[in-house]
Structures are given as structure tokens and as C-alpha cells.
Write a protein that binds this DNA or RNA. Structure first.
Lengths: 188, 188
DNA sequence: CGCCGAGTTGAACTGAATCAAGAAACGTGG
DNA sequence: CCACGTTTCTTGATTCAGTTCAACTCGGCG
């Protein structure tokens, strides 16, 4: 759980009781490679912090799986739209390695947000930072070729090739598996 | 300013003093069509709520302007990455009609966030909702053809054609001006 | 009247998708 | 530890939506 506490501390000062509140509110849970952490059409009532392993989110489009993102340990994951709006999720969350997470459900989270001002502030920073990440990502990637997208991804997530297979990575980049395979074939 | 108060009230209960704090913290400012509200490379220290008019954000890519989004009245705008991280903005904010905004600077905003719990909570909801919007948008648009993107845009922002010119709209959709012009030419 | 920005139309080109086989690698049970 | 089925990855040929470049139209306005 240290990784989670450090993550929160990166954003806000955390008094001892707030740290205690976090440790009490999150539960540790384990998944096997291949397990579905959240199934499409369920309402996602949990927020997960990955302590160990790798997770992807995906949804079905024309009967085919589309990977939306791949998350290594040290990141928060959930089906955001489902979690925030309490509606059925269009995406699934899938452990692609043996994975350990810290889980908190929405009710508990809201409770902690309201009771611990520092954690409430952290919640805002987390949302702001996620929003900003998505914003910069979508703007930055718009004009990149398939090759540039891939090199870019490798630069900030180099071991993704060990953690996720070709098809997932290609899908996450919005390119076909064949194209990505050809890119790998070329040198540099 | 009523529109702004209503916007906040949509997300949170707003005690009278909190409402007063908002009215005191935001200043009204006017821009002429064509004015730059924020210039690229400046640090954006303000958050704007559009009371009247239309605004777009854009950045330069290979010497050409790329419109990232077009906002009508009733929305918050800023150069998010610059505002949140207090770094130089890569994008500019541009009034494309005569526009009236309510402005708040970051210091004042943080102050209000900390002093008024309801407004702090609103800040988190705002960030969460923006994040979610970007998320669903980017996922939803990935597999749409140029035509579907345009029809989709028209369905939730029908008067955009009156408010923004062809080039801005095409750029915002990530398609060329020529392609959008051809789409308009087709019937239906 | 002639210029200018905005929009339209035409023709040629291209990056990446798709379709279609194969080749490797992987793991499970005998 | 090997055989066999399954999944993952590679390679080739073809196709297409949308880009690019270039020229042209239209309406407004000094």
C-alpha cells in the first residue's frame, strides 16, 4: 500500500489521520491473469489502484474487442463513465497479468472525500490530472503517423511490450495489428 | 451571471454565502469578435465561463492553425494544461463572436475551493465531468467516418454552423476543409 | 470595379485497413 | 519431453477514405 500513499502524497500533504483513513478504506484484492475485474454492462462501483501487474480496459465494437488503454502498476483504473455517473459500463476491465489492486467503493470514497479535506482536494487533483492527460494525449496524437504513435508510446511506457501483446497495443494506438507488426519489422 | 450560478447548482447544493462568494470572485469581461483571450506561450492564470458568444481554442501545427474545440455560451473554457500546471500554453483562446465571459484567476479559485466546501466539491465534479467527456468523446469518435463525425457534432451542437466557419469546424473534427465541404454538398 | 476571405470542385496520391495465408510460440495433457 | 491445438505474430496483395494541391466561384466591401 506504500505505493498508493506515496501517490496521494505527491499531490497533497497528508496528515496522519488522513493516511490512516486511506489505509482503512482501501481493501487489497488479487486477480489472476485473464480475470475480468469489471464486466461490460455492470455498473462499476469501485475505483482501483494497481499495486502489482497490468490491466487493460476494452469494449466491443462490431463484435471485436477494442483496447482503450493499458495500465501498469502505480495507476488508478476504473470504468470512468460508469463509476462517475453510476450507469452501465460500456467497457470491461481485464487483468492481463497476475494483478494486485487496492479497491475502494464509491460510497466509501465520497465519505472520505467529505470527511478528510486533504483527500477531497486530492480527488480534485486526480480528476484534473486525468482530464489534462486525456486532453494532451488526444491533441498530441492527432497528427502522428502510426510509427510516431508507437515510438511515442514506447518512450513513456517502454516495458509495455513485455506486459501486453501486440494486438492490445495496436488497438490502444488505434492502428491495426498488421500495421504494428510491420513497424516492428522495420529497424528503429 | 445567472447562467453561471445555475451551472454550479446543477452539480452541488449552494448555500447563500457560497453563491455570494462566486459572484464576488468572478469578474465580467467583454471581447470583440477576433480578439485573442489567451495568446499561445503565455501562462493561463484564468478560468473563463462564457456568458455570451463563442470561443475556440487552437494551436499551431506545421505553421497551420488547428482548432481543438469550439465552445458556445454556457461552458467553461481555459487552456487546461497551462492553467492546471502553470506552464506556458501551447494553445490560444480566440473569441470568434463578440463574447462576454465571467473570469476567475487561479489564486482566487483555489481560495474559494478551500473556503467553501460546496464549491470545492463542485471543482471536483467539474474536473470529473470534463475528464469523462473527453474520454467518451475520444472513444466514440475513433471509428466514425468523416460524415458520421459531422452529423454527430450537429446533433448536439446544431447552431455551430452559424457560429463558426467551415475551416474551424473541419479542423475540430480532424478532417480537411475540402472533405467537410464535400459532405455538405451531399444531400442528407 | 477589383480585391479578399470563405467555400467549392476536380484529379491524383497515399497511409493504413482489410483480406488472406502462413509461421512461430505457447501450454497442456499424455 | 514431445505432439497437437490454440493463440499470437508476420508477410503479401489489394483497396479505399480522406489528403493534398490546384484552380475556380461567390458574395461582400472599401
Amino acid at each position: 500500500m506504500k505505493e498508493l500513499i506515496d501517490y496521494v502524497k505527491y499531490y497533497v500533504k497528508l496528515p496522519a489521520e488522513a493516511e490512516k483513513a486511506i489505509l482503512e478504506s482501501f481493501k487489497v484484492r488479487e486477480y489472476q491473469k485473464g480475470d475480468l475485474i469489471l464486466r461490460e454492462r455492470d455498473v462499476c462501483r469501485n475505483l482501483f489502484f494497481i499495486l502489482k501487474g497490468t490491466v487493460r480496459t476494452f469494449y466491443l465494437h462490431d463484435g471485436k474487442e477494442v483496447t482503450t488503454w493499458i495500465y501498469p502498476n502505480g495507476y488508478f483504473v476504473t470504468a470512468w463513465s460508469s463509476f462517475l455517473l453510476e450507469k452501465e459500463s460500456f467497457e470491461s476491465v481485464h487483468a492481463i497479468e497476475n494483478t494486485t489492486v487496492a479497491v475502494i467503493n464509491k460510497l466509501t470514497l465520497n465519505d472520505v472525500y467529505d470527511k478528510r479535506i486533504s483527500i477531497g482536494r486530492f480527488g480534485r487533483f486526480l480528476a484534473e490530472e486525468k482530464m489534462n492527460g486525456k486532453d494532451e494525449y488526444s491533441k498530441g496524437y492527432m497528427f502522428l503517423s502510426a510509427k510516431e504513435k508507437y515510438n511515442n508510446l514506447l518512450s513513456f511506457f517502454p516495458d509495455i511490450v513485455q506486459r501486453a501483446n501486440l494486438g492490445y497495443i495496436a488497438s490502444m494506438l488505434g492502428i491495426s495489428q498488421e500495421t504494428l507488426s510491420r513497424l516492428r519489422g522495420e529497424k528503429s
